[in-house]
């Protein structure tokens, strides 16, 4: 049975990595407004592995974008790592995305003209890290997702599963506190999907908080906590 997520309060909030406090996101003007995310309360504990399910268009990606500081809530507050980021300026949000949050998307979003190595280096570049250090850390990240041999490959020469692992390496090279994955296996066959999930779980065991969106109940079943999104309303599955 589903129940509405409780208003955040108490010590949970202090230790939580992400807290939505009546945070909502509305698109468009007043006449054609789409309330993609209704005012929502959510507390994500540090180190948790959360799955979000729900029908298409229900607002899952919107939720993830707010959590990932790619989008600001139009109402309410969002506390990330104890800081209210709802009113952060572009510069600060960019810094947060750069050093706190890792992203993985259904479409891998790799730069086609760049090698796996340089794709993984990207967040480090925006962090202002020198090239030699970037290369070293990118190579390590690629090795950690089993792609040590693919460093100089271009995305076009890699399988879907390998591309998603490059994307994962890019997300993990920042050593993010929060890993956000929007249907990371949605575009992969079962075996490749499993491989990706294993890496995500492994990362989670290392302490990284993971929130992942999926349409696959099997994937959802592996999460510690499951949420369902329907018409912009988030509910907890117990």
């Amino acid at each position: 049975m589903a129940e509405t997520v409780q208003t955040p309060s108490g010590s949970d909030v202090e230790t939580a990595i992400a807290v939505l406090d009546e945070a909502g996101r509305t698109y468009g003007g007043s006449s054609v407004a789409v309330e993609a995310l209704k005012p929502t309360n959510l507390t994500v504990a540090r180190g948790d592995l959360v799955a979000v399910m729900g029908p298409s268009g229900s607002g899952k990606s919107t939720l993830l974008h707010v959590l990932g500081c790619l989008d600001r809530p139009t109402t309410g507050r969002y506390l990330l790592d104890g800081r209210d980021v709802s009113h952060f300026a572009d510069r600060e949000l960019a810094a947060v995305r750069n050093n706190t949050i890792g992203f993985v998307f259904q479409r891998f979003h790799l730069l086609r003209d760049e090698t796996a190595q340089r794709n993984v280096e990207l967040p480090l570049l925006y962090a202002g890290i020198a090239r030699p250090e970037r290369r070293k850390r990118a190579a390590e990240a690629l090795a950690s997702v089993g792609l040590a041999e693919r460093v100089t490959h271009y995305p076009g020469k890699l399988s879907g599963g390998e591309q998603q692992r490059v994307a994962l390496a890019r997300a993990l090279v920042k050593r993010p506190a929060l890993l956000l994955a929007d249907e990371p296996t949605g575009n992969l066959d079962t075996a490749a999907g499993h491989r990706v999930l294993e890496i995500i779980e492994e990362e989670n065991r290392g302490g990284t908080t993971v929130i992942l969106i999926t349409h696959d109940p099997e994937v959802s079943a592996r999460a510690r906590r499951r949420l369902t999104m329907r018409d912009g309303v988030l509910t907890e599955e117990t």
């Binding site: 572009d90 960019a94 990207l122 925006y126």
Partner: peptide, 16 residues
């Protein structure tokens, strides 16, 4: 758009 969005996502500011 994809490339630009991704760069923003990975830490690029608007002015970057």
């Amino acid at each position: 758009y994809d490339e630009v969005a991704l760069r923003r996502c990975e830490g690029a500011r608007r002015r970057d």
